[in-house]
């Protein structure tokens, strides 16, 4: 069965001459990767599941005691953790919606014959290629109330983007939108250019208005690829750490990953942070699954 899945070996090749079969070559390539995955991903995953039921602390010599579901119970009863989840949800919604809007909008603008389109697209992609930490540090300067260029350009005086508890999360989301809209734009552009031109011609002959054309032709055909962008961005936004960690220390902008980091590497509550990581993992899996189901539905249409 497996042999039919892959291209068969050229009989005259050196590998064939050495007596290597297709399967052994396939194994040669795959087994190291699988081993790597098992050692560095699967094993720690299972190991940490074990720790999540103990009061283990990596910073002491004290042996780990089995505490059952205590960690999970404590975490799910902790109002701070719930507020972290609520903040994260708010952040994901704002930042992904913003990226979708801006990214898709820019893609629509670029999806026509304009001079220097290639250069323009490349320049627009730059933010996405920067390191998260660098973007965080730069935007911290841009947002600065005393000398930041944003307040200067918008004439906002000393408006406190990051020091205002209500504004901080939006400021982080805005930076994330700036950074990752190009990603959505890129995927949308690929989707848009794949829409057959004759559909638009047919619509024009039928005198369909621009809104009708957009909602009945463009959007449905781009939807699957847009959904992929949403899945990627949701997962990433859920895990956001560096950007938010560098930009602000407001408790109103403390995402779940920051809380997790503090618990694991500042407080060294290893057992509890393993439990927290599992809660986050389950949530991300659940959300992604809903998306994937929806994506399949969109594709079927």
């Amino acid at each position: 069965m497996a042999t039919t899945m892959i291209t068969t070996l050229d009989r005259s090749s050196r590998a064939a001459a050495r007596g290597l079969s297709d399967i052994s070559i396939r194994n040669l390539f795959i087994i190291p990767t699988i081993l790597f995955l098992i050692v560095f991903n699967i094993f720690p995953l299972i190991y940490s599941l074990g720790y999540s039921f103990t009061d283990f602390r990596a910073s002491t010599n004290a042996p780990a005691n089995f505490v059952g579901l205590q960690n999970y119970r404590d975490l799910l009863n902790d109002p701070y953790v719930w507020s972290n989840f609520a903040i994260t949800a708010k952040y994901v919604i704002i930042s992904v919606a913003g990226q979708l809007l801006v990214g898709f909008g820019v893609a629509m603008l670029l999806n026509r014959d304009i001079p220097m389109k290639g250069l323009l697209t490349t320049l627009l992609l730059l933010p996405m290629m920067l390191s998260m930490a660098v973007v965080g540090l730069f935007w911290k300067l841009l947002y600065d109330p005393s000398f930041g260029i944003i307040n200067y350009a918008l004439g906002l005086g000393t408006f406190e983007w990051l020091a205002d508890p209500k504004m901080a999360l939006y400021a982080v989301a805005l930076t994330d939108i700036w950074m990752w809209s190009p990603f959505v734009m890129l995927l949308s552009l690929a989707g848009l250019s794949a829409v057959p031109k004759h559909l638009y011609e047919a619509a024009a002959i039928d005198r369909a208005g621009p809104f009708y054309t957009f909602f009945r032709i463009t959007l449905p055909l781009v939807a699957p690829i847009l959904m992929i962008a949403v899945i990627f961005r949701t997962m990433e936004a859920f895990k956001t750490f560096d950007l938010a960690y560098i930009l602000t220390s407001q408790p109103t902008a403390e995402l779940i990953s920051i809380r997790l980091y503090k618990m694991a590497f500042q407080e060294w509550q290893t057992g509890r942070s393993c439990a927290m990581a599992y809660i986050v993992l389950i949530m991300v899996l659940a959300i992604t699954n809903i998306y994937v189901k929806y994506l399949n539905k969109v594709k079927e249409r």
């Binding site: 005393s146 020091a163 220390s249």
Partner: peptide
Amino acid sequence: YKELYKFTPPGWAK
């Protein structure tokens, strides 16, 4: 200590 925070430069939250 909170009273002192009133007299800090803008954005003095981190």
